[in-house]
Design a protein around this nucleic acid. Structure first.
Length: 557
DNA sequence: GCCGTTTTCGGCCCGACTGTTTTCAGTCG
């Protein structure tokens, strides 16, 4: 039972209590406990051994007891009983955008509908609008929401799949009979949503792979197990497949199982991959095919093969190129940690600068800053900058782009900052023309350096609003405004296609974590992967630049 | 259900938008 799983269960308890309309503060208590466990540095199991679970903030006597029961027995009586009152399928209905606990309760009680499939059917047959309180529009929104969910059903984002896959791979490599292992498939290519986890494994004895794999604690079920394959389900119901090959077949199989189908089809159209038996690297194979080594993120047959033949592939940005983070929250707004804690973590990561960009006042739920608190924060940052060495904290803001495209602070206030990230956090449902104009307004203000999470998409949850991307890129280039690649695995916004286009327009990119706690600074990794899929080079990315060059860009010099 | 206290009970983030209403409840960030 991992921290994440415990946090999930506490959240589901909160969901059930909310549907049952219990005390809102009790519900929040469960959510608070879930959140702080989710972000905990230490494993709950080791805290348990030291009897320190009660020390976790938000965990009091009652929840402590329940977590201990969960860790001891793998189940919790309180939760099991709640599930009898509100079935799992009803909880899943909560994932439909636009419907919350009240409406789920209403629908469940009035119609008995207790799963998403039946809910969709009822919406299609116009049976939902018969329920008092639900009209045509709500019904239509529910239908649309479910269709979006279904499109991505079973898909899981990089932030969940990649760490789990790497953990599995490293576990396999502990066994000395397993000579090599690599994450492959669309996950290695870095696609934002993947269907499953594929790992290529080299071993002389396939039974060794079976033996070791069976001991991986995150496996829920094994469906198939033979000479070439072990497959089944991992935690969170993620499908996995281990592809077992002999050591001599490892590298050509690595190219084969990594490449998208169109990529590998072109690659091996003339020479079969078996003629590469015994190769000692992927590079060797690409060389024998008369081309440069193609990084996994580019293997989509989108022109990379032609470029590789001409020796013209771009040198892609790498995690190690990142010199700082330009979108970071602190406990001045909705971040969890103090500025100095974020700085410490940023320094650990080898950064030389970091921008503090808390929310602005129009976002009250986030504790958005008003002019006065922004000034106070600026003074604190000035002080910190005097104390720390070899590191710069930039004074910034994530300023809200209001409905009409104006910014949440006056020009004068914004001019006194080192960096301005501007983002949309409200009115997502405006039409394409208005939404585009709104963002263009922000760009044209001349006060903005970076547009944060441009489209507002949340993978698997919410599609972004429609925008005239070309119009925005053209204007951003003219006004020296960079676009953010928001690294949060649920966002990865802008996406790879827009990043690719941005480069053509000469628009610079900022790869930002949007961290709300110090651990989140590590999310930058996913943004870098996304940038690589968009063919982005270090020079395209302003936060790979040295501080002085960055400052010139920010001052629009 | 948690937390903190001039310590065992009272307080615990809010505002805008949407869709359904006919003055407001639910959802979202």
């Amino acid at each position: 039972m991992t921290n994440r799983q415990v946090a999930d269960i506490l959240n589901r308890i909160a969901d059930i209590l909310q549907i049952k309309e219990e005390n809102p503060f009790k519900i929040r208590a469960y959510r608070n406990a879930a959140q702080s466990i989710y972000y905990l540095d230490e494993d709950l199991r080791s805290l348990y051994k030291k009897d320190k679970i009660g020390d976790v903030p938000g965990v009091g006597r009652a929840v402590k007891g329940k977590i201990e029961e969960l860790l001891e027995k793998g189940s919790m009586e309180y939760y099991e009983n709640l599930l009898k009152e509100v079935p799992q399928g009803v909880l899943e209905m909560l994932s439909v955008p636009g419907i919350g606990h009240k409406m789920v309760k209403l629908i469940y009680e009035k119609t008995g509908i207790d799963n998403i499939d039946d809910l969709l059917k009822a919406a299609e047959e116009h049976r939902l609008r018969e329920i008092p309180g639900i009209g045509e529009k709500t019904e239509e929104n529910i239908k649309k929401g479910i269709e979006m969910l279904k499109k991505n059903r079973g898909k899981v984002n990089l932030g969940i799949a990649l760490p789990l896959a790497e953990k599995f791979r490293d576990f396999l490599l502990e066994d000395e009979r397993i000579l090599a292992a690599s994450v492959v498939g669309s996950l290695r290519r870095g696609k934002p949503l993947v269907n499953d986890i594929d790992i290529l494994v080299a071993a002389e004895d396939y039974l060794a792979v079976h033996e070791k794999a069976e001991q991986f604690t995150e496996i829920k079920k094994i469906n198939r197990k033979d000479k070439e394959n072990v497959s089944g389900k991992l935690i969170f119901d993620i499908d996995f497949e281990l592809i077992i090959v002999l050591p001599d077949d490892y590298y050509h199989s690595l190219v084969w199982t990594t490449g998208s189908k169109p990529h590998r089809a072109v690659l091996f159209s003339e020479i079969g991959r078996s003629s590469f038996r015994g190769a000692v690297s992927e590079k060797e194979i690409y060389e024998k095919l008369n081309m440069q080594f193609i990084p996994p993120e580019l293997r989509e047959n989108r022109g990379e093969i032609e470029k590789a033949r001409l020796n013209e592939l771009p040198v892609l940005v790498e995690l190690g190129d990142i010199k700082g983070d330009l979108h970071v929250h602190s406990d001045w707004s909705d971040g969890a940690h103090e500025i100095m804690e974020m700085v410490r973590k940023a320094k650990e990561k080898g950064y030389s600068y970091m921008a503090v960009t808390d929310h602005s006042k129009s976002l009250p739920i986030s504790g958005g800053l008003d002019e006065e608190r922004l000034l106070a924060q600026g003074r604190v940052i000035d002080d910190l900058n005097l104390k720390i060495e070899d590191f710069k904290i930039l004074k910034g803001i994530e300023v809200d782009i209001l409905k009409d495209g104006s910014l949440d602070f006056s020009d004068e206030v914004l001019e006194n900052l080192d960096i301005v990230v501007a983002s949309v956090h409200s009115n997502f449902k405006m039409d394409k023309e208005k939404q585009t104009k709104r963002i263009l307004n922000a760009i044209k203000s001349g006060k903005v350096n970076i547009i944060g999470h441009l489209t507002g998409r949340l993978l698997n949850r919410r599609s972004g609003y429609e925008l005239d991307i070309d119009g925005i890129l053209k204007t951003a280039a003219r006004y020296n405004v960079a676009l953010e690649i928001n690294s949060h695995p649920e966002r990865l916004d802008i996406d790879e296609e827009t990043a690719f286009k941005a480069k053509e327009y000469g628009v610079k990119i900022a790869i930002n974590s949007d961290a709300h706690n110090k651990e989140d600074l590590d999310l930058i990794r996913y943004g870098v992967i996304n940038a690589r899929r968009g063919w982005i080079t270090p020079d395209d990315v302003i936060n790979t630049w040295p501080y002085d060059k960055l400052v010139k860009f920010l001052k629009k010099e």
